[in-house]
Amino acid sequence: MTIDTHSVMYITKRPDLVFTEGQGSWLLDQNGKKYLDFLQGWAVNCLGHSNPGMIEAIEKQAKKVINPSPAFYNEPMIALSNLLTANSCFDKVFFANSGAEANEGAIKLARKWGKLHKNNAFEIITFNHGFHGRTLATMSASGKEGWDTMFAPQVPGFPKAELNDIESVKKLINDKTVAIMLEPVQGEGGVIPADHQFMRDLREITKKNKILLIVDEVQAGCGRTGKLFAHQLYNINPDIMTLGKGIGGGVPLAALLATDEVACFEPGDQGGTYNGNPLMTAVGFSVISQLLAPGFLDEVLAKGQYLRELLLDLSKELGLDGERGEGLLRALKLNRDIGPEIVERARNLEPIGLLLNSPRPNLIRFMPALNISREELKQMVDLLRGVIKSIK
């Protein structure tokens, strides 16, 4: 099958294949080749491909109403808001279409709160190697190398600290500081979890200095770590949380959550043409409901531990540097910069391919569907073993 992609704007190097179907942990390309998918849209498809509950929600809602305008309430918007607040420490929800948009909203909300309650404080301390999105403000908030010059000048107000170094945070706090914003697990930075003591210290410092704590759970939230929300691993309650990726299970949906004390937007401050539309929020309600089903999150924890053990055994066997992560967001630490080559060779395996990601050249990241089977986890590691052994 000839692929004519001339009209698709070039933004990244894509392999010469087109995915046509998906089921669970598997994708099928235009030539009928199967791939075991450990990308899942970068932790997006938390319930895998073609999830029956999601399909049912889409079909049912599409026959009723798709977008009556964000100027009005709709039933799925209300139902999903209630489900999220009933299962979290937050009181209010604003729906958006992407994680970057949710994070942009969190930045705006924090600055509005600073204007009202902290003498116009506006600086938000973020972290080196953090990733918060691709808008100008969220790129500025991110600590990704090279992003400070890519679309310069940056949006000001995002001094950078070091993850798990509380002293680096303390040095940046001043009378302009309104919030601290971080990923509980840095995904693009290399699957680096925040230390438990570090997170507790952050919460203490923010309370002491009357500044907000914002957790970006776009990648680590929605069951990915084995808890519904990643910050629950640390037994802390943030002031603001952002969700994306997994909340929609594959459709464009994100959310900004805040406590009553912080939710200070006024009419005209925030909006969006498609935000909170019933088609997407109906899907989100199905996704979160499935994650909350009895035993589901316990299984994520158990399968995360199983994957950890498989990766540690593989690392020991091949002389690699171990693994890290939380739940089913994990990384294998390589002993040399062969990550991109592993990704390429794994995808080109025959008769079935394997889809992996290398956020850093000495690392392979795993973001499988949360309902993946143990057999599929073992199959992935067996395939990966052969790929690594094939590289001289």
Score class of each variant (00 low, 15 high):
Glu261Ile: 09
Gly53Trp: 08
Leu172Pro: 06
Glu375Pro: 09
Glu317Thr: 07
Lys207Asn: 12
Ile124Glu: 05
Gly272Tyr: 06
Glu56Val: 05
Leu17Ile: 11
Ser315Trp: 10
Thr85Phe: 07
Pro252Asn: 08
Asp165Cys: 03
Trp113Leu: 02
Phe94Ser: 13
Met54Cys: 13
Glu188Val: 14
Thr12Gly: 00
Gly223Asn: 02
Pro52Gln: 11
Leu279Gly: 08
Ile342Gln: 03
Lys170Thr: 13
Leu320Asn: 03
Tyr10Ile: 05
Lys316Cys: 01
Gly284Val: 08
Thr177Phe: 00
Ile247Met: 04
Ile166Tyr: 04
Ala254Gln: 10
Ala141Arg: 07
Leu243Tyr: 09
Pro159Asn: 10
Asn103Cys: 14
Thr281Trp: 07
Ala369Trp: 12
Asp269Thr: 13
Ile125Tyr: 08
Arg345Lys: 13
Leu243Thr: 06
Lys378Pro: 02
Ile214Leu: 10
Ser69Lys: 12
Leu136Gln: 11
Pro368Ile: 04
Lys207Ala: 07
Val300Lys: 08
Leu257Ala: 14
His49Met: 06
Ser81Arg: 15
Leu377Phe: 00
Gly276Val: 12
Ser25Pro: 11
Ile388Glu: 06
Ile124Trp: 03
Asp313Cys: 04
Arg308Lys: 15
Cys222Gln: 05
Gly295Cys: 09
Tyr35Gln: 06
Ser315Asn: 09
Tyr306Ser: 10
Val287Trp: 02
Lys170Asn: 10
Asn97Lys: 12
Leu233Tyr: 14
Phe285Ile: 09
Ala57Gln: 12
Leu297Trp: 12
Ala86Val: 01
Met150Arg: 15
Ile372Tyr: 04
Ala102Lys: 04
Glu75Val: 08
Ser7Glu: 13
Leu256Asp: 07
Ser142Gln: 01
Glu59Leu: 09
Asp37Glu: 12
Lys33Gly: 03
Gly105Ser: 14
Asn237Cys: 15
Gly133Ser: 11
Trp42Glu: 15
Gly223Ala: 01
Arg203Trp: 05
Gly53Ile: 05
Ser98Pro: 06
Phe94Ala: 14
Gly276Ile: 08
Ala137Leu: 07
Leu47Arg: 07
Arg345Glu: 05
Ala110Gly: 01
His117Gly: 10
Lys13Cys: 00
Ile124Ala: 01
Val178Phe: 04
Lys170Gln: 13
Val8Leu: 13
Ser25Phe: 00
Pro340Val: 01
Lys303Phe: 01
Asn87Val: 15
Asp195Gln: 13
Asn67Pro: 00
Leu356Pro: 01
Gly105Thr: 13
Leu182Met: 12
Ala43Ile: 07
Leu314Cys: 08
Glu376Leu: 08
Leu80Phe: 05
Asn97Glu: 10
Trp26Gln: 14
Leu349Gly: 11
Leu213His: 04
Leu312Trp: 06
Thr259Lys: 15
Gln30Phe: 11
Leu83Trp: 06
Gly22Ser: 02
Pro278Asp: 10
Lys171Val: 14
Leu27Val: 08
Leu363Cys: 01
Leu314Met: 14
Ile180Ser: 01
Thr85Val: 09
Asp337Thr: 14
Glu162Leu: 15
Asn51Arg: 02
Lys64Ala: 06
Arg347Tyr: 00
Ser88Ile: 00
Gln40Trp: 03
Ser168Arg: 05
Glu323Lys: 01
Ser373Gln: 08
Leu256Glu: 06
Asp165Met: 03
Asn275Leu: 03
Leu228Tyr: 05
Pro359Gly: 04
Gly190Trp: 02
Ala62Phe: 00
Glu350Lys: 13
Pro361Met: 02
Lys115Met: 14
Ser69His: 13
Gly114His: 15
Asp260Asn: 14
Met241Tyr: 11
Arg308Asp: 13
Gln23His: 08
Gly32Ile: 13
Gln186Tyr: 07
Leu172Thr: 02
